[in-house]
Design a protein around this nucleic acid. Sequence first.
DNA 1: TTGTAGGCGTTATCAG
DNA 2: CTGATAACGCCTACAA
Lengths: 340, 340
Amino acid sequence: MNEKVVIPKLDDVARVAGVSTATVSRCLNTPDRVAKATLDKVMKTVEELGYTPHFGARVMAAKRTFTVGAIIPTMENAIFARGLQAFQEELHKRGFTLLVSSSGYQPEVEKEQIRTLVARGADALLLIGYDREPEIYEFLRKRNVPVFVAWAYAPEHDLPSIGFDNLNAMCRLAQKVIDFGHRKIAVISGIIEGNDRAFNRLEGIKNALRQNGLDVDQMKVVETNYGIENGARALEQILSSTNPPTAVMCGNDVLAVGALRYASKAGLRVPEDISITGFDDIELASIVTPTLTTVHVPHREMGRKAATELANLVEGIAGVRMEELETSLRIRDSLGAPPA
Amino acid sequence: MNEKVVIPKLDDVARVAGVSTATVSRCLNTPDRVAKATLDKVMKTVEELGYTPHFGARVMAAKRTFTVGAIIPTMENAIFARGLQAFQEELHKRGFTLLVSSSGYQPEVEKEQIRTLVARGADALLLIGYDREPEIYEFLRKRNVPVFVAWAYAPEHDLPSIGFDNLNAMCRLAQKVIDFGHRKIAVISGIIEGNDRAFNRLEGIKNALRQNGLDVDQMKVVETNYGIENGARALEQILSSTNPPTAVMCGNDVLAVGALRYASKAGLRVPEDISITGFDDIELASIVTPTLTTVHVPHREMGRKAATELANLVEGIAGVRMEELETSLRIRDSLGAPPA
DNA sequence: TTGTAGGCGTTATCAG
DNA sequence: CTGATAACGCCTACAA
């Protein structure tokens, strides 16, 4: 009844295989420095005993945790979920474990989580975007924790990163909107504070307006947290103003879907009465009615590459330090000419 | 230039505070067994030095990791993302860290990940559904790792769990479909092997048919992986048969959305020509056109409660061992009477 | 209430 | 190529 719980340890393997613990350790970590015969013998007993190295002990001795931490704004959003999934798959292949937490878009929370992950010995961290207090980077530098930034590309920073040019991408989309004939454009943006992605997307729109000689100052901008409901409310607010816009550009697809929904509820036809655009090209974008015009972002690829880079970083292999991924416009049904 | 990297250790705190390491340790772990004055003094130096306990060392000595592992089928799906988010928030409050991995609905992968998490010393595991090889449970029992099952409620198992009655919920929905007048019903189900949720949902439909004297054997069932595209292809396959159904019940909302999309592409009106239902009530369900009839599941609550229970389990506090959450039907536009 | 000292399971250094 | 052996940083009886 009272079965003994025995978790085999390195020692046991060594004894059974008739070698020293050092040799077993080597078989596991640097198999090439062990004689083939010894290796086979050891691996066989490892198998037999069902041995798995004790994590804590390994961390103590090796001073490495084989753990990578990632802090994302939210898991509840396909944007990050998809990239993260690819990230974790790739990491797993390389023998790392991923520790995820989400900050709910709150800089304070993120800060605390960075500390937690470091305390737990994360070998490296994946962060989203550049925007955060310098003291955080200072802390990370002191603790010698490599950081990799994803979902943002900005060569002026010196952190290794992968991402795309939010500003340029949104600028191109805005140009398209203008080309369609729109002159009165409003924006539903994510909260800009502490979010360089949101900031740059807005900048992109402004740049496009300026390049076309349009007045940026009178462009209506509503900032709100990402969320379908918020997108709906934001559009409601925008439409309640005098001289409403003919096109509304949203900081991401989630907001855009909310706007789309409110428009239909308000009896507006999209794009006949009003055009709406998004950003990210999440699955939802091609499912809603009308389908959403947006900017396509290669989330999967980004996640995968981020993992590779991060692993290299930890292992001291020099890799690409900064990579820009291509985005592309997806012109779908939600964008059309403005009403006459 | 070459700033020294010093990570303070227990020893340093002890020296500076003028006490022994044991006392510092006690201050951190069992503050009530230390004199107030000593405690204050120690905590102050902890603060000053910015000390954080070394994770690996703590694990080795305490034989606990304060880590909970969770293995979910996929992160790319709002179904789990939402529950997981709540799960992690609650866990964090209780001082635990969450380790997530996703198995991609592959039992083999899940098995490996369970081993990995255990090797890393997870204090407990959250698993989705009951269905897995007995040897896995055996392994977990041997290693003394408590397991908590979510997204499933089945009193016949003796594992602590939280979830809902998939069979009954789907049966109720099927009854509704039948009440609307449908007699020719087809099913697009998730892969049933290793997925008791999928299995029970299908059973629920069958039960409803039987209760209404309908022939279960001639009900067309297509099994496919969860995914919008797969849902679309499954419907295509179903419609290509002779004597097509008037209603298609899908194993989850994602499949249903795919079906919805294919229907519209094929020129079928929903629900006039064909009715479609889902399961889960993800956000998408009320956004698609037409809105989707489905079963609402309290993901958030489930995640939160699972965290509480799991924490109690680890800390040896007796809690509710098994809890059933209520589901409810959401009858929306995608369900209507069959064509005349 | 506080201090002393042994041990947790690996890895890495250094001889052999 | 292999084997002793010393860290690694903390926790926890046990003793004072």
